[in-house]
Design a protein around this nucleic acid. Structure first.
Lengths: 120, 120
DNA sequence: GTTTATAGTGACAAAAACGTCAGTATTGTT
DNA sequence: AACAATACTGACGTTTTTGTCACTATAAAC
């Protein structure tokens, strides 16, 4: 997270929201947890194979610190940890949905308007 | 923008969407243009005083390249340039709205659940 | 002829984000 | 005794992002 809301004045709700969900993989993680819940770390990794474990854990920690997800550790061996959206985290569903919907529209737009700019 | 959709396979709409609107100030810029349109650069700067001009211009260029906004240059002195949301850009309104709405909820949540973690 | 306004660009530095690698803990299995 | 599985952490370096500073163009106003 780039901005710490604890240390800055936020005038708008969007700034506050973006400080929490603006991270590189945050929306993707929340998306996973909306598909299936709870999820173990290893399961999230299967959903997001492009994210390395280190990064994934860092993003999960930030989401946990911001109370968007909960982390439940089971005292077993090998260890088992389950991640779940919190109540306020679940309320992000409309955000994720609207992003996916727009992505659909944008994909259609791209197909209908092929790039005139060639990268060469 | 971190990911070039021209160069990567995108399997989900969210990935495609995030590659376009995931930039640091993209949502904020789009938010401005939903409040008032068209806007000149100097006007966007008044909306977003924390963004330096260099950065703002870079983000505007990316949005323009992705066809989210249009840039109209008037051949006058001093120069006048107007930015406007494109058709596909206007469709981002539900995304911005849902983010703002969630931000409101999250602010309330923060007020109701004061931080137990003190930073010292 | 100097200043003003607007919308930039280029070079560079600082900061933040990201990735890689190696290592930890536990206990049950081979 | 070595190895496997899961969920990590720490050190470190690289890459990307962001910011700063100086600079450009133009015509009108003073």
């Amino acid at each position: 997270m780039e901005i710490e809301y604890k240390e800055k004045n936020f005038f708008t709700s969007k700034d506050l929201a973006l400080s929490v969900i603006g991270g590189r993989w945050k929306i993707a993680i929340i998306w996973c947890l909306l598909q299936q819940t709870p999820l173990r770390l290893s399961e999230i990794q299967k959903y997001l194979p492009d994210v390395n474990q280190r990064m994934l854990i860092r993003q999960l920690r930030e989401l946990e610190d911001d109370k968007i997800i909960t982390r439940c550790v089971y005292p077993v061996v090998p260890p088992k940890v389950e991640y779940e959206l919190s109540e306020i985290g679940l309320l992000l569903e409309p955000v994720v949905t609207s992003i996916c919907d727009w992505g659909d529209n944008f994909r259609t737009f791209l197909e209908e308007n092929p790039n005139e700019t060639s990268v060469e």
